[in-house]
Design a protein around this nucleic acid. Structure first.
Length: 796
RNA sequence: GCCGGGGUGGCGGAACUGGUCAGACGCGCCCGACUUAAAAUCGGGUGACCCUCGGGUCGUACGGGUUCGACUCCCGUCCCCGGCACCA
């Protein structure tokens, strides 16, 4: 028999067997299935089909998902684990511009490559459920969902300042801007006023703050929930009306500090505030024009406060003070009301402004946190004063409790070609007209010129753009912008469970059966984008009655970045390391094990190929040991040997780490320890049991070698064998190593029976010569006994 | 500034509810076996310092504290990473 470990032979063999056996295809429940059998939705963020294929970050992500998939499957759950393609988007379009060809051809070529890479890694994916965002059978339903949002006012069009990427020639969502730069290409983002499509994410701002998962869910990491809450940025305060008497209008302000209302000494408007254009002096208008053109980051970077008096005064409703109205760029139009009451005594920014323009400062809170200079509120603690002043304002009809959010609506129209068309036409008579459902999908036409020119490439396709109005039959034009690819990824995980449905995006019963997703693995970079948008989609669709859950992802895990040279692998940085060469050299099993063995999977790791040798050695030793056992070890076994107990301990450790602790590297260490123990005694009592256990535990990590060795041990179809269970009796030890300390320092250790009483333990401990040497005749002041662990004598 | 996560051998890291001389497992390195040799493989060693070779002292960013006992809990300091940030 050839006993060399040759992954290049066994891996394709088992991959073929799994495919033929349809080992990992999982059908949906039959109609009428109550759905009470355990099931599990394992999801990993779908990949963009890059021309570079997948890199080690993907390998980490999908191997983690694979381990969980196998363990859950074999633990008795029906596990759905699909795969698909985030296949719209800029890189393919840019490649088409650069190198010619059609984005569709480029994308589909990449998908073919990546699918083969994925299959070569042996991931247990249900390929029957594969979906692709650019497939008309998929984007038909993306468009259909858009129309449902549109009908409810959750998708709308307005002119607004938006983030423009001058390099990609399109609008970018807030969540994908990093330090004022395009997250994708790195170009500096500009500020433009454009008519854009928005999803009304703010409609769910409050609800998005709560994370309400079904009982028993894994839940989200604390930092992720905190991160989204920060992004939403809820502030409680008051909206207060200040009257401009000479113009007979009210200017509302939002403040979180209504208790400082008596300290307001001036009033400031954002440069974009409509009041400025209508009522301010020419000088103030001129200032606003320049200041308003600057981006928020530029404004924040300015060290000196700037501003101009508008020529008008606002009346403080609480004391009748006439406050000069200024326009200054430290006030932002897109937060609160775009206007503030300035309280220089208690706000740093207002203080700077007051200092720069020599404006008065009136303190209204003393060192004890009580109000002063505040008439009838003097002496009230600030916290109480907030309520009291709001109440007073409310009675006067000059203010009310108010909540403000940092979150803004999601602009999702893109001025590029390779995305789903937005199913809207513009009619001279009827205005904005949605394309009727039975005309979906609005197919993305083939065009010759993808070059962005500051407007959508589709806009110049006269043949496509000119249509008849669905309402009146008159001439109309199609919307030429396409949808952000994050619209596709906001619902793909629901299409996965019902991918061939041609009557609806998905069947309610099917999504309600599988969702919410039990475990979702993906990068934390999508926290305020994709993950927030998906939650928004689910809440909206729940309101529409299309599904019964309120959260899409009941368990979330962020893998760390696989880095090279200290930065995350990415095409733009040119530090991408793919799995192909490694798989060819060491085999898929070794690559899978190694990427998980590198460290805690939620922590960033520096790619370093050197350590893979250790994993290859482990696999070779496993191979030899199991063959050795198969040939020489006796059948049966007492089940009571130290080796058997080690095997049971390993089962408990691996299971607990993977399922509860979500830690993938320590199980590998534990399996190495078991192999070390087995290698020491390959023909002993319970060697066969230990070998079978080890192979069974290795299977989720290294399924090919496990399957091969399982057959060497005389068994079949390991992938559907029950996950091993640790025998509690075997975990119980008859003896334990008693640690004896004197003054907290270990002085002796020896095996004792677990049956000994505390007194007996103390007697044994005192009997030790080493202990006596340290007690040395002194008085034992105190004795601490920790059952099954130690005895500590406090002496002296 | 606010919020979150960290700091353990030459390296990646372990120690899960304060309790087995902290350092599992692996990499690297050193020594040895096998070999003409190398590779592969196998065995041994590997926190620091001291040592009469029995062992001893110190050691988990730093300084304190709680405790019989602290990598683990508390207070303070330094540093690193991430999120939010002229958000009123």
């Amino acid at each position: 028999m050839d006993t060399r470990y040759q992954p290049e032979l066994i891996e394709p063999k088992w991959q073929r067997i799994w495919e033929e056996a349809r080992a990992f295809n999982v059908p949906n429940p039959e109609p009428g299935d109550p759905g009470d059998a355990p099931h599990w939705y394992m999801l990993e963020m779908l990949p963009y089909p890059s021309a570079n294929g997948i890199h080690m970050g993907h390998v980490l992500n999908y191997t983690m998902g694979d381990v969980v998939t196998h363990v859950r499957r074999r633990s008795g759950s029906k596990v759905v684990r699909p795969m698909g393609w985030d296949s719209f988007g800029l890189p393919a379009e840019n490649a088409a511009i650069r190198e010619g060809g059609h984005p569709r051809e480029i994308t589909e070529r990449n998908i073919t490559t990546i699918r083969a890479q994925m299959k070569r890694l042996g991931w247990a994916i249900d390929w029957d459920r594969e979906v692709a965002a650019h497939d008309p059978a998929f984007y038909r339903w993306t468009q259909w969902l858009f129309l449902r949002f549109y009908e409810r006012g959750l998708a709308y069009r307005r002119e607004a300042p938006v983030n423009w990427c001058p390099n990609d020639q399109t609008v970018i969502a807030d969540a994908y801007i990093v330090d004022g730069h395009c997250e994708r290409c790195g170009a500096q983002i500009e500020f433009r006023n454009m008519t854009q499509w928005f999803f009304k994410t703010t409609a769910f701002a409050d609800e998005l703050l709560d994370f309400d998962f079904p009982p028993g869910s894994i839940g989200w990491p604390e930092r992720s929930m905190t991160g989204q809450r920060n992004w939403i940025g809820r502030s409680e305060g008051a909206e207060i009306l200040f009257r401009v008497d000479e113009l007979d209008i009210d200017l509302p302000v939002f403040t979180t500090r209504p208790d400082t209302l008596f300290g307001a000494t001036f009033f400031v408007l954002a440069p974009e505030h409509p009041f400025v254009e209508k009522h301010a002096t020419d000088e103030a208008k001129e200032y606003a024009k320049h200041a308003g053109a600057k981006r928020t980051e530029e404004r924040a970077a300015e060290t000196e406060k700037t501003g101009v008096f508008t020529g008008h005064y606002a009346t403080n409703p609480v004391n009748g003070d006439k406050l000069p109205i200024w326009v200054a760029d430290y006030v932002l139009m897109d937060y609160g009301t775009g206007a503030i009451m300035a309280v220089p005594a208690h706000d740093e920014r207002d203080a700077e402004f007051a200092a720069a323009f020599d404006l008065p400062v009136v303190p209204v809170i003393d060192v004890d946190g009580r109000l002063v200079n505040s008439a009838q509120f003097d002496g009230t603690p600030a916290e109480d004063a907030k309520r009291a002043i709001i109440e007073w304002l409310h009675e006067q009809g000059r203010g009310a409790l108010a909540v403000s959010y940092r979150l803004r609506d999601w602009s999702f129209s893109r001025q590029r070609y390779w995305g789903s068309p937005i199913p809207i036409v513009y009619c001279g008579d009827c205005g904005v007209v949605p394309v009727p459902d039975d005309e979906l999908p609005v197919l993305l036409p083939d065009i010759d010129d993808y070059q962005p020119k500051g407007k959508a490439p589709l806009a110049s396709n006269e043949e496509w753009i000119n249509v008849t109005c669905p309402t009146c039959g008159g001439p109309a034009r199609r919307e030429a912008d396409t949808m952000d690819t994050f619209v596709d990824s906001s619902w793909y995980f629901m299409r996965y469970v019902d991918p061939h449905n041609d009557r609806a995006p998905f069947d309610k019963h099917v999504v309600d059966y599988w969702l919410p997703v039990d475990f979702y693995i993906g990068g934390i970079d999508h926290l305020n984008g994709h993950l927030l948008y998906s939650r928004f989609f689910v809440k909206a669709l729940n309101d529409m009655g299309m599904l019964s859950f309120r959260e899409p992802f009941a368990g979330l895990f962020h893998q760390g970045w696989v880095q090279m040279g200290g930065t995350k692998m990415s095409k733009t940085k040119g530090n991408v390391m793919g799995p192909d060469e490694l798989v060819a050299e060491y085999g898929a099993d070794a690559v899978r094990l190694y990427i998980l063995f590198m460290g805690p999977s939620d922590q960033d790791m520096e790619w370093n190929e050197a350590g893979i040798e250790g994993i290859v050695r482990f696999l070779r030793r496993l191979w030899r040991a199991v063959h050795d056992v198969a040939e020489r070890a006796p059948a049966g076994g007492s089940g009571d040997s130290p080796l058997a107990r080690t095997a049971h301990r390993t089962i408990a450790k691996v299971t607990d780490d993977v399922l509860r602790r979500i830690q993938f590297h320590t199980p590998i260490s534990a399996m190495m320890e078991l192999l070390n123990a087995l290698s020491d005694d390959p023909t002993g009592d319970d060697a066969r049991f230990a070998a079978e256990t080890l192979v069974s535990l290795v299977q989720p990590y290294a399924p090919h070698i496990a399957e091969e060795l399982w057959s060497v041990l005389g068994h079949e179809r390991l992938w559907e064998q029950p996950w091993p269970e640790a025998d509690p009796a075997a975990l119980e030890e008859d003896t334990f190593e008693l640690v004896v300390q004197v003054n907290g320092k270990v002085r002796d250790r020896f095996e004792v029976s677990v049956a000994l009483s505390e007194d007996e333990l103390v007697q044994r401990a005192l009997a030790s010569e080493r202990v006596q040497a340290h007690v040395n005749g002194a008085t034992v002041r105190k004795t601490i006994v920790v059952p099954r662990k130690l005895v500590n004598f406090v002496v002296g």
